Structures are given as structure tokens and as C-alpha cells.
Simulated scan of single mutants.
Amino acid sequence: MTALPTTVSTSRRARPDGIETRGHLLIAALRLFAEKGYTKTSTREIARVAGANIGAISYYFGDKAGLYRAVFTEPLGSPKDDIALYDQPDFTLRQSLQGLFSSMLAPLLQGDLMQQCVRLHFREMVEPTGIWAEEIDNGIVPAHSALVRVLCRHLGVTRADDDLHRLAFSVVGLALHIFVARDVIEAIRPKLLATPAAIEQWTAAMVDFADAMVAREADRRRTTVSLKKKKP
């Protein structure tokens, strides 16, 4: 594993006249890191593709590691940033599911940028630098815990068990499958992802699917309790 330095300089605030340069660096770095990986991508090549001075990388991101972290985290954001969109005590289940899937599918509206982000995540899993493990701990685990809280509230469960965690993973899996299998979906049924309206329609469908999954789990739990009561 090629570990990123743990003392990476934070990026400086972009000057108004440098926002475009910073953006070009991010896009160029995203494509190159996704294609070649962290180790085989040089800052000189990134600057050349971005049409920027190599010193701009140091100015905006600190160093190569800082640029990689920005590329990995900024375009899609962190899952924990969206927790408030679905983990609200006064939300109905469907409101929570709508907030969850709307936030998860929003990156699809970014087109090729999203595809490059997915490829970068795959590359990180094959050639880990440690940033994916950080994202799991700092972003995915809190988001999963929030969804589990939502499910507990609506199922009347005080303590999450293995079945509830399975349900949470299965609910999220509805959306994650699109990112993993987008090439397959576009080969079989491209219109399903062709427009913002199509993505909104898929979001609505996922709310229905997940709602049914939760209802089935509620039925299963009631049946289990009922059978236990009937036993002598």
C-alpha cells in the first residue's frame, strides 16, 4: 500500500482569479489518478494537462497528497455530509428514504465527472493509499449509523441487530448498484440514466422499493414475535 502522508498541508483558500486554475487541476488530476493511480501520476503531468504552472499545485493543495485527497473527496463529497437530509426524528420513513436516495443519486447529474470518480475509487481499492479506509471510518460508518437509527425508529427497534444492519446495507445497495454497474445499465437500457428526469424517476422508484423492504422486515419481525408467543 502506498500510504499518503499523515501531515498533509491543507489547501489554501483559492484567490478569486485562481478558482478556474484550481478547477482545471482537480479535473486533470482526477482523470490521471483514475487512469494511472497515485504513484504513477506526477504533479508535472497533472500541471501540463491542466495547463497550469506546477507551482499552482503547491499553492492550492499543499502537495501531491493534498491534491489527491481533494480529488478523492471534493467531487462526490462525504456521505456524512448528507445525514441531515434523511436522519430527522420528525420525518416519515418515505421522507427519510427520499432524502437518502436524492443525495446518493445526485452525483449522477455530473455525468463524466462522476464516472471518473467511480473509477478513482476502484483504483484506490486496487492500489490503496489509505484514504479509502479513512473515508470508511469518517464518512461511511457515520452515514450507515444514521440510516440504522432511521430504520430503528420506524421498526420500533431499540437496539439494532444483524438483520437490521443487513436491511440498511440492502437499502443503500439499491443506489450503489447504479454506480458500480453504470456501464452495464447504459448498454442495456441507456434511457434510464439519460436525463435528470430519468434519474428523478429512478429515485422515486427506489423509495418505493426500499419502503417495501422495510415493510417486509416489519412483517417478518411481527411473525417472529407471534411464533415465539405461541410456543409452550
Rank of each mutant, 00 (worst) to 15 (best):
E134F: 08
P107E: 11
M125D: 03
L85E: 09
N138A: 15
G130Q: 01
E135K: 09
S96E: 03
A106G: 05
G99E: 06
E134L: 12
A84N: 06
A84V: 14
Q110Y: 15
V157F: 04
L151E: 07
L97F: 05
L105G: 05
T129L: 07
G139R: 00
I131H: 08
S170D: 13
D161Q: 10
D90T: 09
Y68N: 09
P89L: 05
D161T: 12
D81T: 11
R119N: 13
P75R: 03
V150N: 05
P75Q: 04
R123C: 11
C152N: 10
E124F: 11
L120T: 13
L93D: 08
H165Y: 08
G111C: 08
Q88C: 12
I136R: 00
F122Y: 11
Q110H: 15
L167G: 10
P89M: 06
Q88V: 15
P128I: 12
A84Y: 11
Q110N: 12
L93F: 08
M104N: 09
V71R: 02
V157D: 09
D81K: 01
E127T: 15
D137L: 14
M114V: 08
R123I: 08
E134W: 04
P89H: 06
S96M: 07
Y86I: 09
P79S: 08
I136E: 03
Q110F: 15
I140N: 07
V71F: 05
H154W: 03
S78H: 00
Q115E: 05
